[in-house]
Design a protein around this nucleic acid. Structure first.
Lengths: 251, 251
DNA sequence: ATCATCGAATGAACCCGATTCATACTCCGC
DNA sequence: GCGGAGTATGAATCGGGTTCATTCGATGAT
């Protein structure tokens, strides 16, 4: 019965078209002017059809988030499984996040909006779990690298679980995204190149963990060199601007 | 003319009652079930009256945020102006944020929601500026402490502006609030006592800045002792649970 | 070729809640 | 008591998410 498979494939295609269209509308006109009817119209469908794929507007937004979270995790996984010293892998994780943020500047805003909205509602336990599970791999990847570092004797052995250590770099990263995307703080203070700041501070943080320092995090040339190396080795596809210095300021 | 002043005073009082009522409703039933009509009713006014104070629902939410941001800054200012070594002041800043977060658990959720919503809309420029300006002092306070530390020779002198250094601890703090409040990540991973984690990581981060370490950040007893000292000295009023260990886990 | 079946599509109708506005009230100085 | 500025009112309006009774069209059995 090829009919059934064709139906399922068409369903998935339609769903993806809805998702893409919604995402496009968001990044063009902002989240608040996203209207279910417009999304449907943009794909030449009636409103009701959209509701056969997504139970509600919240559901649609969550689906977009989950869709993007997969991509985010994918590149982080590449970093975590890199065949390199744990310190390099740790930095590569941050680089992955930075590149993702540059690639999908709307994602964090949307994710933030969605998660706050969902948590406030405290209903729809299932969806909430879905969002949490989307984050699951991130914590696992980060703490795995920390565990490796402990095993290899690269950092002092702590009485803490790896995730309790990993939460620091993670929070640092999240917070920087926050400041960049949600509050406009960095513009307010005229802080250029926020992602370089993030990378620098990740180095600082790792030094505080008594990690074996590779170089002074305030040495700009060394930092750039390391970033280029990581980008070229792991994330070539995420750096489409050409060769050389892949990590370019958004300003 | 006492009439004019009385009118203004009554206006301010009414406005404050609206703000308090709205905040109460939010923390009781969640942001999403906040209704303008209910807020008005709860204060024994009609809907229209509420709109004489706040141009829109967004305006009301923004006002709540600005109101709370003032309190947050107040306690941070106390920390920044403490007559103590810069390292202690830096930690005290984090403690202030932690105590504030424990005192007003809803604030960060609301702030996040509001800022994302407002940034998306890009309307109501005035209130938006108000929110940004509410953050202004935070950056100034933090970078002032860093500058003092540089001047005193407590940290290596960098080629960076103080705020470019301060942004690290700040982002760390923001990110941890994020993970705690918005995403429920820490519960998901069964990470207890997130604020202790934040404080611990602040120590780690400062160590990475080549700050003079006061003690091993993984030494729980020393950490507790320092926290108690800071709480008792600076934030006695924010620690109402009695004497002794003021910093108690939310779990 | 005809017909029964069923999943998909439709969009007008419904509902909820933010916002507006024409009207009414209250207080004050004169 | 009067005029008017400032306030209060809540029914009406409006926008947009969600529902559902109906229609459509492909499929496959007779």
């Amino acid at each position: 019965m090829g009919t059934r498979e064709r139906r399922l494939r068409e369903l998935a295609e339609r769903e993806q078209r809805f998702l893409d269209s919604a995402r496009e509308q968001i990044s063009e006109h902002g989240l608040l002017s996203l209207q279910m009817a417009k999304v449907a119209r943009a794909c030449d469908y009636a409103t009701g059809t959209l509701y056969q794929h997504f139970a509600s507007k919240e559901d649609l937004l969550l689906s977009i988030c989950a869709d993007q979270a997969e991509k985010r995790v994918e590149s982080m996984a590449r970093a975590a499984h890199w065949d390199a010293p744990s310190r390099d892998r740790m930095i590569a994780l941050v680089v992955a996040d930075v590149l993702f943020a540059k690639r999908h500047p709307d994602h964090f805003r949307l994710a933030q909006y969605v998660t706050t909205e969902v948590i406030w509602r405290a209903a729809s336990q299932k969806r909430r779990d879905a969002v949490l599970e989307a984050h699951g791999p991130i914590g696992e990847l980060v703490s795995q690298v920390v565990q490796d570092a402990i095993d290899a004797g690269d950092v002092a052995s702590f009485k803490l679980r790896p995730l309790e250590i990993a939460i620091g770099p993670w929070a640092l990263s999240e917070g920087m995204h926050n400041l960049v995307h949600a509050e406009g703080i960095l513009d307010f203070y005229d802080l250029r190149d926020p992602y370089r700041l993030l990378l620098r501070h990740s180095h600082i943080h790792l030094n505080g963990l008594h990690w074996q320092p590779l170089f002074d995090p305030f040495d700009d040339e060394a930092l750039t060199a390391q970033l280029n190396h990581i980008c070229a080795t792991l994330f070539d596809d995420l750096c489409p601007e050409g060769t050389g210095y892949r990590y370019c300021s958004p300003h």
